[in-house]
Design a protein around this nucleic acid. Structure first.
Lengths: 166, 166
DNA sequence: AGGGATTGGTTATATACAATAACGATATCG
DNA sequence: CGATATCGTTATTGTATATAACCAATCCCT
């Protein structure tokens, strides 16, 4: 979130030099009262925070959720992971490939269907997931500090209502 | 947001065929209680809603905000718009080009600096912006219906707190 | 049991969006 | 004047998401 006030740091004009009227403060209009705009700014911010918090384990948000789901549902197929997370199966392939390449997850032959793969975490994957969970918990605490414990619960409830299909 | 229950529609297995335990319901674990995850799902949803709502005027979220800012701050330079909205100046060029190509905005020579451009809306741009504002207001009402009038205010406040730099 | 339709996984490809590097023209500062 | 910074631009990269087409395996229906 960059407020109009921040603009001064990118502004070559000096205070000594008279600026035409109030042009030095950009009028954002009703923007800060639009759900979509505020939601986008919040997402960009939290997204950056996430990236910084999980840099040590080098996991992107989607990779993190995939590891989490696989860890909690041993033997899940790729399609199942995809529909559970709302990912496109075609985009899931390179994502999983990367996790496999790093030795975090495995594709094992499925028992009942020779087309599908049963997905498992390797011991390394489980260890990394655990570490990632710790880092993520710390992030969640920092985010909670911004909105308060009660505010966090309310926020999550409101966001769920916002994304529910009506 | 795709719930675990939706998975059945992508699931080849029949009910008659005994499924190992409760595997037919994917355990999302603590995911639905993570601010980042819930925020992302909400953003994706609202983003899609926005696209649908403003299809008539064919404006993407960023284009909409740019028109809004230019309309409210006549003669702003490109850099000023960029820093006000947190956009990269390099990414702003093709965005503005498109608006100019469609006859919605203009680059006029700036009075005080021959390097910079004073940005203006054309009459067509102003008309389209007004129409877009109407469509957007309707969208905002539909979103408000999901969280309630009071919930909307609370949500915006919480999102602001979430994206503020601490 | 056989044959059409469907599904799981994959590849290739297209589009949108954000970030970096470098450049010419202009403006500012010492 | 000369060093330095800024405005706008191009080119390029990386990431995220969506579409089309494909093979093999499975399902469904008669």
């Amino acid at each position: 979130m960059r407020s109009a006030r921040d603009r001064s740091v990118c502004d070559g004009r000096r205070d000594a030099q008279p600026v035409p009227d109030d042009e030095h403060a950009v009028d954002l209009g009703p923007l800060d009262d639009f759900i979509g705009y505020v939601l986008r700014r919040a997402w960009l911010r939290v997204s950056a925070d996430f990236q910084a918090a999980l840099r040590e384990v080098d996991l992107k948000p989607t990779q993190f959720t995939v590891l989490l789901i696989i860890g909690r549902n041993v033997g899940l197929s790729q399609s199942e992971v995809c529909s559970a997370l709302g990912i496109q199966k075609t985009n899931f392939v390179p994502l999983l490939n990367e996790l496999v390449r790093r030795g975090l997850a495995e594709r094992r032959p499925a028992a009942s269907d020779r087309r599908s793969h049963a997905l498992h975490l390797t011991p390394e994957g489980e260890a990394l997931l655990e570490r990632a969970m710790t880092l993520h918990a710390a992030l969640e605490e920092r985010l909670t500090a911004r909105v308060g414990k009660r505010g966090r619960e309310k926020l999550i409830e409101l966001l769920h209502r916002l994304s529910r299909t009506d």
